[in-house]
Design a protein around this nucleic acid. Structure first.
Length: 304
DNA sequence: AAGATTGTTGCTTA
DNA sequence: TTAAGCAACAATCT
């Protein structure tokens, strides 16, 4: 479930290790994952390198050094990008056991999360990038909703233009948020999940943001008072920033580029806490209902 | 063992 | 016309 904070964490980590390194080989284990023709995809990327990495909402954008092309990667629900430098793996060969094993310190052997503590590639590895220095980048995806695609500048522009404002941009101010909400008849939860309206918020952070703001997720947007809009706006900024600080949330599948969990799971106030006591009012119990087709958690007594 | 899970698309309904 | 709602997608877990 990578949302903005998880994708931001991956982006920042990868930018420290893969930029300007020549890509020597591309291995595609599952063609369905690549939304370009395989020959085109591999042809553009091979012997190329990543010049810089950006993020639009939950989408990763790798600008190529050829200055013409971009690799875009969407992790959807169970995608992972795991990076192993040469010094951190041993190559195992023979008896169908070919693969790489992390050197020990970085991958969590106790974890029951695919991608953590596993041999790589594992059964969910769909694409592998090999760099000239023998480091490897693995794209794993259990459910195969994620994708990779090579696009040019014009197509990228079009894709990025579909996204609503970046919530953590300093240019995203209360007035713009207020204007976005005008005349909307949907629930505030559905609105926060809509990438065309605001980019990067998913199910976990939508619930956490509305808890912090003290607003019921089912509230119709056009019923919100200015004070409530301000409260939601502030909560968007603080919750997302804090989640980035804690390197995201690992509930089921998310790991960072070194196979580590995100620690924001310890800070969750409502997500997956249904039936438990509210951490704020200590009166209410966290309730779970369905809004916008999604499991939605909130405190009945202190969210109004 | 059916239903839930989750991000996004594209179709249907209002 | 526009917006809102929802099934579908894949694989696994409960």
């Amino acid at each position: 479930m990578p949302e903005l904070p998880e994708v931001e964490t991956i982006k920042n980590d990868l930018a420290k290790v893969v930029l300007n390194k020549k890509i020597s080989k591309i291995i595609v284990n599952d063609k369905k994952i690549i939304k370009s023709s395989i020959n085109y995809f591999a042809g553009i990327l091979k012997n190329n390198s990543f010049k810089e990495i950006n993020r639009a909402g939950k989408l990763l954008i790798f600008q190529m050094s050829d200055k013409k092309n971009y690799l875009i990667i969407h992790l959807k629900m169970t995608g992972q990008l795991i990076y192993l430098p040469r010094y951190d793996y041993q190559v195992i060969k023979g008896k169908g056991m070919e693969g790489l094993v992390a050197g020990g310190h970085s991958l969590d052997k106790e974890a029951k999360i695919p991608g953590i503590g596993d041999k790589l590639p594992n059964k969910y590895t769909r694409v592998i990038f090999e760099f000239k220095d023998e480091a490897r980048l693995f794209f794993n995806d259990l459910r195969k909703f994620g994708y990779l695609k090579v696009v040019g500048g014009n197509e990228l522009k079009k894709i990025v233009s579909e996204f609503g404002p970046e919530p953590l941009s300093i240019d995203f101010k209360i007035n713009e948020f207020r204007d976005i909400l005008v005349n909307k008849k949907t629930s505030i939860k559905a609105l926060l999940l809509n990438q065309k309206i605001i980019a990067g918020i998913g199910n976990i952070y939508a619930d956490e943001i509305l808890f912090k703001a003290g607003i019921k997720p089912g509230r119709k947007v056009n019923s919100l008072k200015m004070k409530e809009i301000e409260s939601i706006f502030k909560s968007i900024k603080t919750v997302l920033k804090k989640a980035i600080k804690y390197r995201g949330t690992t509930f089921s599948n998310f790991v960072d580029t070194r196979g580590r969990r995100g620690e924001f799971i310890k800070k969750l106030k409502v997500y997956k806490r249904e039936g438990e006591k509210c951490l704020r009012c200590r009166d209410g119990v966290i309730t779970k209902i369905k809004i916008a087709g999604r499991g939605t958690r909130f405190c009945k007594s202190c969210q109004t």
